[in-house]
């Protein structure tokens, strides 16, 4: 990897540096303020390094508090992160020339933000440089930012305990921001409505901790049953995501 590519990757990833260090710190502070663990910064470091997933990092604080059964951990993680399973479809072709190990790393490190930069790599890589080097640089830097944010938050939260009540709203705010952007398109607004109604039905018939799975089933059923109606509203151009 040349210096030029690394520099381009760094510049492209600057907004992610801001976002990840702020969100990561919030998640780390929440963890330190809620859960009593020995060597807490180490656990923050380990979990952020393995999962690299914002929403998961927040919600696992509740799970640790409740000692949620691991089967439920698996199901809820699935619901929370099922969107990742869609990202790869637009990257299969691009990643094909990579050696096995590098490809595994790029798959492992595929977050929302990294995905957004990687699908746009053609425009962001300096002329004459390898796009895949750019992708690798972005993935690695984003990974570092996230680990740094969460671990720093855990250290700060352990060293100077302060009133962090309400900091968990950062996760809700993150989702709201993503949804606000998605709702610029009409078909996405319809899809969002399906999600809201399914979630409310899930909550009406089940408890909060059990609502996501029935809601997902209902959503899937609605999308399959009304496939024709949705597909007619999708933009014709084949743009992924």
């Amino acid at each position: 990897m040349t210096k030029r590519v690394l520099k381009a990757a760094f510049i492209s990833s600057l907004p992610v540096l801001m976002g990840y260090s702020a969100m990561g710190m919030a998640a780390g502070i929440l963890l330190a303020g809620t859960v009593k663990l020995k060597f807490l910064p180490f656990w923050a470091f380990l979990s952020s390094g393995i999962n690299i997933s914002g929403a998961l990092q927040f919600i696992m604080v509740n799970w640790t508090e409740a000692l949620l059964p691991l089967a439920q951990v698996a199901l809820l993680t699935f619901c929370l992160n099922v969107r990742y399973a869609m990202y790869g479809f637009s990257l299969i072709e691009k990643f094909r020339p990579l050696p096995w190990l590098k490809r595994c790393y790029l798959i492992w490190s595929l977050t929302d933000e990294t995905y957004a930069l990687e699908v746009d790599s053609a425009a962001r890589t300096p002329a004459g440089e390898n796009q895949l080097d750019f992708c690798f640089g972005v993935a690695f830097l984003d990974h570092l930012y996230w680990i740094f944010g969460v671990t720093a938050g855990a250290v700060i939260g352990t060293a100077l305990p302060f009133d962090s009540r309400g900091i968990d709203f950062a996760m809700t705010a993150l989702f709201l921001v993503v949804l606000t952007d998605q709702c610029q398109s009409k078909v996405n607004r319809l899809s969002a409505a399906v999600g809201i109604i399914s979630a409310i039905c899930g909550r009406v018939f089940f408890s909060t901790s059990n609502m996501l799975i029935p809601a997902m089933v209902m959503m899937g059923a609605v999308f399959v049953i009304f496939r024709g109606k949705f597909e007619r509203r999708l933009p014709q151009k084949e743009e992924c995501q």
Partner: peptide
Amino acid sequence: YIGRVLPPAAIAMLIVYCYCS
């Protein structure tokens, strides 16, 4: 098709879940 219509619905569902939590 599912990959294109699901993301906004999943995010919207999670927002409702956050409020309930």
